[in-house]
Design a protein around this nucleic acid. Structure first.
Lengths: 212, 212, 212, 212
DNA sequence: AATGAATGAGGATTCATTCAT
DNA sequence: AATGAATGAATCCTCATTCAT
């Protein structure tokens, strides 16, 4: 009985701790990249001793990978899929782009980290990089399917090119936002991106048609 | 005569050494980013002891900044400006894009480093980041001027948007290339980028015209 | 049971380790001063790796400050206060001086370090210096009170002068001892110091009296 | 002829350079002690490259020793010896003390350095320390002779004690001045010191007399 | 008389990680 | 579930010194 007087708190709570560590880690890693993220810094920011971090994660690599994973999960969870599959192709491409733009505005930490990892080219690739690239690949797959569905006349190569261009635009606009901050109107830029992609797809579809 | 037989143990040659250090540093920093670049690694790759690196550069920060600076200089030097200012706007935009694409293929180290620095958001900003952003800003200025010249009907905002989009596309395509390697046909993608930019500019110019 | 045979490689014991580090540090710093004290040397003398020192102390500055602090504490603890407040002024001053002389003989490391720190005049003052000066200031206060109590006729200025002279004599004799070693009979010299101080105080008190 | 157009300056001038180096070195060493004085810092303060310092001085030890030597020379040079050997013993002791006090006020760098060296107790004694102690020894000799001359009745031991006490007072007051700055009125304190020394000598001389 | 360049040893400090409790 | 203590390897950088010119 005397025991339960000091209530809850400090009653070791794994889930909570794990979350706190991850929260601290995204912030730091999103600011400073993989190497710039020291366990000591994460420990300082989350208030748990470094050794506790090792109770929850095998090693730094594991921690960063988890950051990417859960970061992506929460990012995805925020998406309310438009579901209704109606409207002109332009409308649908634009709607999609608007969704991405919206998500991009306030979840930059995990994405920034991901991009940094993606740019690195070191011999022993961090697992977080692999995870991030896998996620990107499935995203690209999704985009490719959408393009193919909206413009059935497009050949495989055209779809591939457009997909690459679509991803590139998203990455690039994200980078612009990182660099120039609020100055860049992500919503407007993504609307432009959607429009240009749509026009390009439409033209390519037509050209492809004519050729046959 | 007999004297010059042994090359006399490391004849002091500042310029040469500095170059060797910078060469080693771009490679490493381009692969692993700022934090990932250890002075010891640079020392190992260039053959000079770490303390010698500090003769040529005040600090790691100074070294990285110099890497960005000279990296950009050599990058620019490789550009053969088309000079002849003729052709349709589309031709000219495309030519410009082709030039950039070409440069992007084989000078990725310094650019990758620059992008990584740009993405970082640490409290004490590395000087290299500042330098890189300054360079980018003048590049953006150049692009804006070109767009304004080719499409005089465009308003300020339109030029700004198109410039951001142009830079974003370039960054994004560079990132795609880093991630997917040779799979991405930079020349083709930049041609597409140029075309879309041109079409967008043309349409905006027309819309602006009609409004008045 | 079989288990506890090997003392299990360095059983963690914070308090013990901290003490060992401090012990090693006083010795070295007392011999060579602040800059002359390398963490590596301390590590070597106390047997703990350098990195362990940093578990116990934030920095070298922190370590040296702790050396001064605990050095002074143990030094003070060794004083058996005469308690009995009787005897002629001369007897009491002499008793006090004898006590100090005694302490000065065998606790020179921490004091030598303190004096060296006090003499330094570098822009970024080591924290140990501040601590040492604070301690000295309270010691001086104690001396001033004693003088004022024994010679109530003395004015403020006279007390201040005598206090400065008392401290100066102590410092100076300590220095002589450091330089000339056993040759200097600290006990005798401090007895002389006490006598002269007493005479000066007595005369000043008398002069002050006559003036009114 | 064309040669002498750019006049004097930079016309290598050994004496000048040597002086600049020494000036820089006293300042720095007087602030930070032996170990705290880096050749690089001296080089920065005097404007000559580190390698030039090695042209004028064999090594750091040599430089510091030279600092002590020349520091002492200029210090001594400033003394205008009272020469006239008249007056009561008290007057003469006081005059001497006044002279020392005066010199002590504005030449603290070299003395501070000397004291720091004297306090150090490291295995490999810097040559500067030896030099400083030698100088002190001759100074002590001078004092002893003066005391013996003024109080012929004093025995050897008494002279020795008084000499030690005289030096100790000077050192201690110097230290007080270093610590408390202008607050300490060196002139007044040295006058007190002289008076007390004189009284002690007089009494000792009398006691010695009576004993016989 | 002077100096630019170089260099190995050592400086303080931080790193990721482990382990006994 | 958590943590205080420890640790070897690595970090950046400064040190005193040398040497060819």
């Amino acid at each position: 009985m005397a025991r339960s007087q000091t209530p809850r708190r400090k009653r070791a709570n794994g889930v909570e701790s794990r979350r706190r560590i991850l929260d601290a880690a995204v912030e730091i890693a999103g600011e400073r990249g993989y190497e710039g993220t020291s366990i000591a810094a994460v420990s300082a920011r989350c208030g748990l001793p470094a050794s506790s971090i090792y109770w929850h994660f095998k090693d730094k690599d594991d921690l960063i990978a988890a950051v990417i994973e859960t970061g992506f999960e929460t990012w995805l969870a925020a998406f309310e899929l438009p579901a209704e599959e109606t409207g002109t192709p332009l409308e649908r491409v634009t709607a999609m782009a608007a969704g991405v733009a919206e998500r991009l505005v306030d979840a930059p930490d995990f994405l920034r980290l991901g991009l940094m990892l993606a740019l690195e080219q070191r011999p022993a690739e961090p697992r977080g990089r692999t995870v991030f690239l896998r996620i990107r690949a499935t995203a690209a797959q999704r985009i490719a399917e959408m393009i193919a569905a909206l413009f059935p006349a497009l050949g495989e190569d055209a779809v591939r090119s457009l997909t690459v261009y679509a991803m590139a635009g998203a990455d690039g606009l994200f980078v612009q936002r990182q660099i120039h901050g609020g100055t860049v109107d992500l919503a407007a830029m993504f609307e432009l991106h959607a429009r240009l992609l749509h026009d390009a797809a439409a033209r390519m579809a037509q050209e492809g048609d004519e050729r046959h």
